Simulated scan of single mutants.
Amino acid sequence: MTDHPLRYDINLSILFTELPLLERPAAAAAAGFTAVEFWWPFDAAVPDGSDVDRFAAAVEDAGVQLVGLNFYAGDMPGGDRGLVSWPARSAEFRANIGVALALGARLGCRAFNALYGNRVDDATPEQQDELAAENLALAAKAAAEQGAVVLLEPVSGAPRYPLRTAADVVAVMDGVERDAGADNLRLLFDLYHLTVNGDDIPAAIDAYASRTGHVQIADAPGRHEPGTGNIDIDGHLAALADAGYSGWVGLEYKPSGSSTDSLDWLPRARRSSS
């Protein structure tokens, strides 16, 4: 596999979960990776400063680069999928923007994923979309001040999450760019979610490779490592590279066995960005 020039990073919120969070960056380094990504690694939008310091130190001490970080998205195991469009929790998202960007600035991260949020019963879709546009504009403006981008992604397995295809995401991006002048919103091209949702991957690559700011992979069915399912991951990554994408490819899969064993598909020489 891996017949393309793109660089890999490893998502430590879904891999190496057999270890405590703060031990995972060192485990990634020991496995040969030089770049990592995380979902929001704390239980609150504004965590205690000492917790932030310990997390940052774990990444720094491991000698790995943080290349992707989620904004706070609520209780992910409990079914939450972001606060961007959730009126009752919009203030938490806004409070999290500065915290996430400050952590990213410390660790050199330039890509921040804003999960859009599920539809809720106490607001109309139109109200949620209007709020989401406001919040994305705020996040994009703050990120632009440090040369960063805000990512937006389609998600599968969450029936009330409204962004399912690459076109869904780009429509939101276009609206925020048109109304707020934000030009640093990017598509998070997740091959697993897009495939499961039935999107036309080759067509999406042709249309949106230039709007893509990050890529994530897992095979389907199962959301396990490449080679366990039916997605032509290498073919899609090669097509993205041919279309001009030169960013990171995040390993965001549930290992079918141990995290270490699940990396056998990726030669150790391909795990380092150097």
Rank of each mutant, 00 (worst) to 15 (best):
M1W: 13
D9Q: 15
L12E: 03
R24T: 01
R24K: 01
A29F: 01
A29M: 03
G32D: 10
A35L: 07
E37F: 05
P41Y: 11
G49P: 11
S50T: 14
V52R: 15
V52N: 06
V59G: 04
G63Q: 09
V64D: 07
Q65S: 14
L66C: 10
V67R: 10
V67L: 03
F71N: 04
Y72W: 13
M76N: 14
G78Q: 09
G82K: 01
P87A: 07
R89P: 04
S90Y: 06
F93P: 13
G98K: 08
R106F: 10
L107I: 02
C109I: 06
N113A: 06
R119N: 08
R119G: 09
P125V: 09
E126H: 00
E126A: 12
E134P: 04
L138I: 14
L138S: 13
A142K: 12
A144N: 12
E145D: 15
Q146S: 14
V149W: 14
L152Q: 14
P154A: 15
V155S: 04
G157Q: 11
A158W: 10
A158M: 12
R160W: 12
Y161C: 01
P162M: 03
R164I: 00
A167F: 04
A167Q: 12
A167S: 14
V170L: 13
V170S: 05
V172A: 02
V172E: 02
D174N: 11
V176R: 01
D179S: 13
R186E: 04
L188E: 03
F189Q: 00
D190V: 05
Y192P: 00
G198E: 03
I201V: 15
P202Y: 07
A204N: 02
I205Y: 11
D206Q: 11
A209G: 09
G213T: 07
V215H: 04
I217F: 00
A218L: 08
A220C: 06
P226S: 08
G229H: 05
G229I: 02
N230L: 12
I231E: 00
I233G: 04
D234E: 12
G235S: 04
G235R: 05
A238T: 03
S246R: 15
W248V: 02
W248M: 11
V249F: 01
L251R: 06
P255I: 11
T260F: 09
D261M: 05
S262E: 05
P267A: 02
A269Y: 06
A269V: 10
R270A: 02
S272F: 01
